[in-house]
Design a protein around this nucleic acid. Structure first.
Lengths: 237, 237
DNA sequence: GCCCGTAATCATCACCTTGACGAGAAGTGC
DNA sequence: GCACTTCTCGTCAAGGTGATGATTACGGGC
């Protein structure tokens, strides 16, 4: 570092991997790019810092609110990782701080705000390359999905996919769809109800479906799952 | 985003949490700052991108080589997370991409390169505030240590603290010091030797110490620990 | 109302992993 | 040889897991 060396300044983008379970599939929120590069291509929602003074975490919450209309307080939003390869963006140097957001099945897909044609796309369609994404967003999405799968094992993340009140079956549905494997309902029930402070019974019961009504729960105070809920594949067992 | 809006450009710094086990303590590599702000204060080693084209991961490896003289190929280096609060640095807007590096006990503490007085400091001295760090480096260190502790459970990270050949006792020593708890030698031995592809016996044995010679191992191909090595505290059990 | 299908919940059992701990193996120092 | 240390193997009870049977509680058709 010689004294006439100038500190390089780069643009900082925030990209969001917003996941939900919709129509029995894991889906990701994508936007269609309106401008070059990659005009017309699907991409993760995101954008640059709004000002030189905006906090990066704040920017992520702001982008999420713009795209989904949801306040970040109510949902899960965590930093995923930062992607800093020099040629990510052909225009100029941009490093992207990626965030993972988990939202429940929204009534209106992307009604909120001034989002430019955001829509839900099944993750499988992207990961199998039936749909490809702009920039290195394919990689970011892949990392985000793997993070979510892993978090289901050790954290209460699954409840973020669910409405405020949900049944054990709802929860099992989340696990099965995100992990892509079927789980035994009886063992799953025993395990999740056995985890300390994971689920709190509300006293209510469902009434709709064709079987016995299920007890309703809301998420408890536990962030980490005491005995974890481990998947058979992907780990080891 | 109006059309006259300019994309904010910010400086990108790479900060390193370099951990090792030395003198039976978990220690972190720190430098004494020579310039304002925080001149004279201890800080994590790091620096700005060397050029507008430098990859962020590459920059982390470069900084590590400058500080320790070690080539990044031989050791563990992973991205920790990005710290993007607007007032991290009082001079100007800087976002820091922090990395976690694990190195074995080096023969020469900080002999390598042109490092400005880098030295090892016990982590406990920093976390208990007996020594304080510049910027938000206290928080970054804290996150890095917690990441390392967690990684010991599920990954082969502990071997990165060890020389190429090591004994089960060496490995147990790493776990005990990083976790800050004692482990039963007999159960630990059974567990680590039972994990698939974690340890490969070299055939050699130690000869030095006062007890029965220990078999020597080198790290195997496993990155994730099949049955994980769980700590009693901090997790749940 | 009664039978049936469905789904939720409870119960049982064999197996495995874990932690606690005993005991032998294989060196060093005196 | 003896005391001491550390490594390594074994045993056992307790608890978690997967597989699976049984029971509960609803809706729907007749």
């Amino acid at each position: 570092m010689s004294s006439d060396w100038e500190i390089p300044a780069v643009a900082v983008a925030v990209d969001l991997v917003v996941l939900t379970v919709r129509s029995a599939r894991l889906q990701v929120l994508l936007v269609e790019r309106g401008i070059e590069p990659y005009a017309g291509k699907l991409a993760l929602p995101g954008g640059f810092l709004a000002s030189e003074r905006e906090d990066v975490d704040t920017a992520a919450g702001r982008e999420l609110a713009e795209e989904t209309g949801l306040r970040p307080e109510n949902l899960h939003l965590e930093q995923l990782r930062t992607y800093g390869a020099p040629n990510r963006d052909p225009r100029r140097r941009v490093i992207a701080v990626a965030y993972l957001a988990i939202v429940p099945d929204l009534p209106e897909p992307t009604a909120g705000g001034d989002a430019r044609s955001a829509r839900w796309v099944p993750v499988s369609q992207v990961l199998t390359r039936r749909a490809t994404l702009a920039f290195d967003h394919q990689r970011i999405l892949s990392d985000g999905v793997e993070r979510a799968r892993s978090r289901l094992e050790y954290s209460a993340l699954a409840t973020a996919f669910c409405p405020p009140q949900f049944t054990v079956a709802d929860l099992r549905n989340v696990y099965e769809i995100v992990w892509g494997e079927t789980l035994d309902p009886r063992n799953f029930h025993r395990k999740v109800t056995g985890v300390a402070d994971f689920l709190v019974p509300t006293g209510g019961h469902t009434t709709k479906h064709g079987g016995r009504p299920a007890a309703l729960y809301r998420r408890g105070t536990a962030d980490v799952l005491h005995p974890p809920i481990l998947r058979s594949t992907g780990g080891w067992r």
